[in-house]
């Protein structure tokens, strides 16, 4: 069987590269941590990979806005390579700082179609609380999304670990369009409520940041590029769930007896590549 090759970007303050690489390997991928400069200098090429992951961290210390400087390096130095990667139908994920990078490069939410224009349309800004926090949230995935990463997923618990995770799109028309296109792949939810209006911003801490429409993550038009603020890789095993010690951590149907709810996201992409290879 084909083993998809995953480039896990690192350098300049990215710091979730090790676990992001590990989770792809757990679900049948073959990951390599690649320094961004290896792609820019040409010593390695995006062509060599089937999946690109931009992990969490603090690239350039989040100065001048999270993900901005890393985004600029990619926008100005990897433009053609990224365009080619996306045109080839290869999946990209950005997690936390990686999501911020994809939004600031303009890859998310993107212009529509599969030709990126590298124009920023949204932003991730300071949490309404003004605080960086590490806390667990409940997420709900959009059943109608075409995002290949979130296929078949409904609800999971995940940690958020950010100070700038509030998704904003001041142009309401664009925001409405995003929702109508089912590009809002994942939202924060109140796990105890079943009939809340998803568009009404949840109170803190159910929404950890005050995101518009409770947006936790979005995908591009093709469903191949996906970014989210929470950390699904941080719940790769059940023992990482805060309820594990109480015996109430969610279990999964996986063959890996200890598998946590987050791993499926990475398996989805690996299986997508295998199916389309």
């Amino acid at each position: 069987m084909y083993i998809p090759k995953v480039a896990v970007l690192f350098g300049f303050g990215i710091n979730c590269d090790h676990e992001t690489a590990a989770v792809f390997d757990m679900v049948g991928g073959n990951s390599t941590r690649v320094h961004l400069n290896s792609f820019i200098s040409g010593s390695d090429s995006l062509d060599n990979y089937d999946i690109l992951a931009v992990p969490g961290g603090f690239s350039f210390g989040d100065h001048l806005g999270s993900g901005r400087l890393m985004g600029n390096r990619m926008r100005f130095s990897l433009r053609d390579e990224l365009t080619k990667f996306i045109a080839a139908g290869k999946p990209i994920i950005g997690i936390c700082n990686g999501f911020q990078v994809l939004v600031k490069t303009g890859l998310l939410p993107g212009p529509g179609g599969n030709v990126p224009d590298f124009v920023q349309r949204a932003s991730l800004t300071l949490n309404d609380s003004g605080r960086y926090e590490d806390r667990w949230v409940s997420l709900e995935f959009n059943q109608y999304s075409n995002c290949i990463w979130t296929k078949g997923m409904s609800r999971i618990d995940c940690p958020v670990r950010h100070g700038e995770g509030k998704y904003v799109m001041p142009d309401r028309e664009n925001l409405t369009k995003l929702a109508a296109n089912n590009q809002i792949a994942v939202r924060y939810i109140d796990p105890d409520s079943t009939d809340a209006d998803p568009d009404v911003v949840l109170p803190f801490p159910k929404s950890p940041n005050g995101s518009m429409m409770n947006i936790a993550g979005i995908s591009d038009n093709t469903g191949l590029v996906f970014g989210l603020m929470p950390h699904p890789e941080a719940i790769y095993a059940q023992w990482l769930h805060p309820d594990y010690t109480r015996g109430t951590a969610p279990v999964t149907a996986s063959d890996i007896e200890w598998e946590g709810q987050g791993l499926q996201i990475f398996r989805n992409a690996v299986e997508y590549v295998i199916a389309n290879n």
Binding site: R131, D134, P159
Partner: peptide, 17 residues
Amino acid sequence: RQYDHEVIAQTAVKPFV
């Protein structure tokens, strides 16, 4: 809570339970 206590995806018993 303002410290990241679970980056690297390894923290089983966190500061708050």
